[in-house]
Design a protein around this nucleic acid. Sequence first.
DNA 1: CGCGCTTCTTTTTTT
DNA 2: AAGAAGCGCG
Length: 909
Amino acid sequence: MQDLPDDTPFNDAAARPQAPSGIAARAMAARGGENRAPDYLRGLNPEQRQAVETTEGPVLVLAGAGTGKTRVLTTRIAHILATGRAYPSQILAVTFTNKAAREMKQRIGLLVGEQVEGMPWLGTFHSIGVKMLRRHAELAGLRSDFTILDTDDQIRLIKQIIQAEGLDDKRWPARQFAQMIDGWKNKGLGPSEIPEGDARAFANGKGRELYRAYQDRLTTLNACDFGDLLCHPIRIFKQHHDVLAEYQRKFRYILVDEYQDTNTAQYMWLRLLAQRPKEGNRPGGRGLSPLEGEMAGRPEGVLSEGTTKAPSIAEPPPPGRIASGHPPLKGEGKATVNICCVGDDDQSIYGWRGAEVDNILRFENDFPGATVIRLERNYRSTAHILGAASHLIAHNESRLGKTLFTEAPDPDDGKVVVHAAWDSEEEARAIGDEIEALQTKGHALNDMAILVRASFQMREFEDRFVTLGLNYRVIGGPRFYERQEIRDAMAYLRVVAQPADDLAFERIVNVPKRGLGEAAVRQVHDTARALRVPMLEAAGTLAESDELKPKPRAALRQLAAQFARWQELLETTPHTELAEIILDESGYTEMWKNDRSAEAPGRLENLKELIRSMEEYESLRAFLEHVALVMDAEQNEELDAVSIMTLHSAKGLEFETVFLPGWEEGLFPHQRALDEGGRSGLEEERRLAYVGVTRAKRNLHIWFVSNRRIHGLWQSTIPSRFLDELPEAHVEVAEGGTSYGGYGNPYGSGRGGGFGDAGRRNPYGASRFDSLGSPSGGYSARGDQGGAAGRSFSNTYATPGWQRAQQNRTEATDRNWGTRSGHQVERIGYGETDSGYGAGRGSVKGRVIEGELVAKSVADTPSRFNVGDRVFHQKFGNGNIASIEGNKLTIDFDKAGQKKVLDGFVNAV
DNA sequence: CGCGCTTCTTTTTTT
DNA sequence: AAGAAGCGCG
């Protein structure tokens, strides 16, 4: 091991191995005899083992869902350590989420012993970014105690800047600009590097100026936003080759999890680090020197050998976007770059925040000579679930293509079940019942999860579970650290720890009320700008002058004095104690004690919780950093509870039983993804569906409803196209038997006359996707696994329920074009009791109307109703129309009061 | 300056 | 439907 590079550039104790023999010795102890494979390699399949043992050179592991990706990563690290190839501090291992980082740490710990703490460079892109940036803050014009702004701060700051430019912040929303900045930073672009078109797109061409002003302001605030955590290091690396070289020398092995989710900035950051250090290269050698132009600034065009063609799967970049394709660095193929990226293009679901699937599709070009290993043996799911997932994802065109398989399908395994419900309330009720039933049969709640497309869907389940008394756990939902009282408290702490944090100061100057209104705050602000000092300091100055009226002046003086005192205490008092003092003396706790509202006690409780959680951190600073980066409070692991989360946060997890509600057009695939992302947006949605399906180990239930409330209006919906893309062989429709009710709409049809139209029109109506890209059916030749499973779900579907659904669609389509006028309600058994469902089974008729089409097609035709008409609504009963706007009716219901309802949902009485 | 009433927007996904 | 922002009054 004497040839390990010197570790001295990084002198902190944590970065050094605690005892040279520690990890390696332990891991080696785990080995058997000379010729036997070490223990940790046992049980790996050949591909996994290859991925672990190919330590040298670039490696891409394409790991399908449930193929043991994390196991490969962790074992690989253990292997590198065990064979003495590197110290823990010489391995850079990046993940996307804190959860993933935590899990990896823990699993490596199991393999190798306790010294994982000696792996200082295992973490998320962002946490590693901060770590680097703190070391070299001055190179980015910051002090090392800079604060990290969250989205909320960021938007407030941008708003100020927009106003300061004299622009109308209504016309140019800060939120939107924040997203643009995010987008630029995702590509690693600074103010001078953004494309002209982008710069012009905002605020009459002031985009670039505003961006620059924003960055300047961040510097004076000694703060940075999320994007900067990567952009600053990138810039530093490019400008200070010595700094970069230190890291390059340091990291012998680089591992990247979820590579398909990397964005351009992360890619650049990785590429810089993956270079060989300059030393050892001949002067003028091809190693590093041309970095400057090579990475960001360089447009497409000059490609080095081997990349004359873009990968054929890549779509042409949409107009306005930076052309994809980062040319590989010259000559880098010649150096050994021990980088191992693990990912699955089929699980790329973060395109909306700048992830470039291209990064993974292009890996072999980027790193010539790369070993590509496919993991296709799935250890997680039943053959049915896997079959459903594979068939679904085969509809995507942009993919590398993998075929997952599992061994020994079990004939006892159930198929994937598709359920229909009347509305989201019933959906929640039925899923709740199903969960209770499973629980009674002995299933643990911890083994079940509900995965939703959008977080607003969670609420209905929470409501239902509360009334059922069913334990649940919301993951990634409304976050603890985003609550008002927590943010206020944090703002106090931030000002104490980092007096230049004007945003935090502004947040709490007048909380609790101190008689410092807008006028006074503005004055502090202006003074601060004029004197070029932080607002807190300006407040002190101002309090000693006579520029303010006595009342605010006194208030400011007191506040300034208090902060001065707290800052002194910072050195001497334990941080939890200090936090209590601050909240007390500032009157913040008092404020909530005096608050008579219902939430106040909860807020006080949260404040206590905040203080408690601070105990785990060694200093106030450490705590603040944790909150900024993690934004997530620990969950109670002990409790047996159903998990509720979004599909996005479910990636990487698995459950025995999974419920996927809300498979309806417009929600999933989400309308906005379709509108903004077009075809690739649809494909990303499909990957999301794939992620959802592949979370399930044994049981999978997919739901769709025919009515959903969106923005307070009831909309009717049609089943998601993804349902049609499931293979018949692996899917069954729950019908009657489960008796959750039916599938229809309030005004039912009654007349069968329209059925003859079936098949004449695409059930999806004039879907705008028909004309975009692949003709429907074009995909079936591609990824099908053959056999019955290869047949499409939709047309061959034979159950009465499904046929009815098809008819319903056709009818619905007809109705939207005004050719029919259905009236009476035929749906039986809908209501508060369950008793009717079984009986109603055969009687459930009705149709589904595509919500969007209703909204659009009816909006520009006059409503068929008049003010004053007496109407009936399935949910609200009888009422009179109070007013009409397009297709939206305001109705005074006899019992339910005044409601706004879509025209399509009521019938004349 | 602060409070309360009104109107308007919002919801896709997250480090 | 609900929360935020805006407006007008005391």
